[in-house]
């Protein structure tokens, strides 16, 4: 934590010109970083400088910059989104660092995530898993009557906690096995807990699991790192529910589509 208004840091940042490039680390000193700026703003300032010097700016994903969209995601000193608890890298501030720090910046790494350029990775396998079953097939019509389908308070709270997942994919990045279980389990949970989601529960869990495995994510070994790294602090109790839903579905379910 820095008390200063500005600090000088050194970035050791991953540079990769495209998916086929083998990539390398580049060490870039960054002087006079405003400690009130966010981590991504620091990268913006650096990029402006790089452009003025006729150099390639560092590519990184971002959108809302307020921790709600899940577009950003970078490894900062070996932790997805940096070391702050329950925050995205767009919410990480430079005052968290000290003058003279060297910060290692890497893209999220997994076989399922292809690096597009520098720190920008293709996280579309997560979308594919959603397409495989992360929805309910009902005609929603107009706004339904609030209490037409009763839902217990604890259930709705838990479903909301699961739905807090912004799909940034930090769980995969942090997992020593590059497993996507926390993400998929949150998406399975948010439907499994609610009556509207029960109808397709069995096919959903099997289809999403099948897609998850097909995308090349690793297997969960219950390290619990994902839970600690998740910017929305999604709990691994959802992974346990995913496992339960799998058990239920394997007994009563049918083969997912595509086989």
């Amino acid at each position: 934590m820095s008390e200063h208004e500005t600090i000088n840091i050194t970035l050791k940042v991953w540079r990769q010109n495209g998916p086929e490039d083998s990539g390398r680390f580049e060490t870039i000193p960054v002087a006079d970083v405003d400690t009130h700026s966010s981590f991504l703003e620091m990268l913006d300032f650096l990029n402006e400088k790089l452009i003025l010097e006729d150099k390639e700016p560092i590519e990184f994903d971002n959108d809302c910059r307020e921790g709600i969209c899940g577009t950003c995601g970078i490894m900062v000193n070996g932790i997805p989104h940096g070391h702050g608890k329950g925050m995205t890298v767009c919410q990480l501030h430079m005052r968290e660092f000290d003058d003279g720090d060297t910060i290692v910046v890497e893209p999220f790494r997994a076989r399922a995530y292809k690096v597009i350029q520098d720190l920008m990775v293709d996280r579309s396998p997560l979308e594919k898993i959603i397409q495989a079953g992360g929805y309910i097939s009902v005609n929603t019509g107009g706004a339904p009557d609030g209490n037409a389908v009763p839902v217990a308070q604890e259930k709705s709270e838990e479903a909301m906690d699961a739905a807090a997942c912004i799909g940034c994919g930090a769980c995969v990045a942090s997992c020593p096995n590059a497993s996507a279980m926390l993400f998929v389990s949150a998406k399975v949970s948010q439907f499994a807990l609610l009556p509207q989601g029960r109808a397709e529960a069995n096919t959903r869990v099997l289809s999403m699991l099948q897609e998850m495995d097909a995308c090349g994510f690793g297997n969960c070994t219950n390290h619990r790192v994902c839970e600690a790294a998740c910017p929305k602090e999604v709990s691994i109790t959802h992974i346990a529910r995913f496992n339960r839903e799998f058990l239920k579905a394997s007994l009563f379910g049918r083969m997912p589509m595509g086989e």
Binding site: N77, A110, F217
Partner: peptide, 13 residues
Amino acid sequence: ARPRKYEVFKNPG
């Protein structure tokens, strides 16, 4: 599942 290892990897817990 992770062919390229991280240069730095920390256990956040």
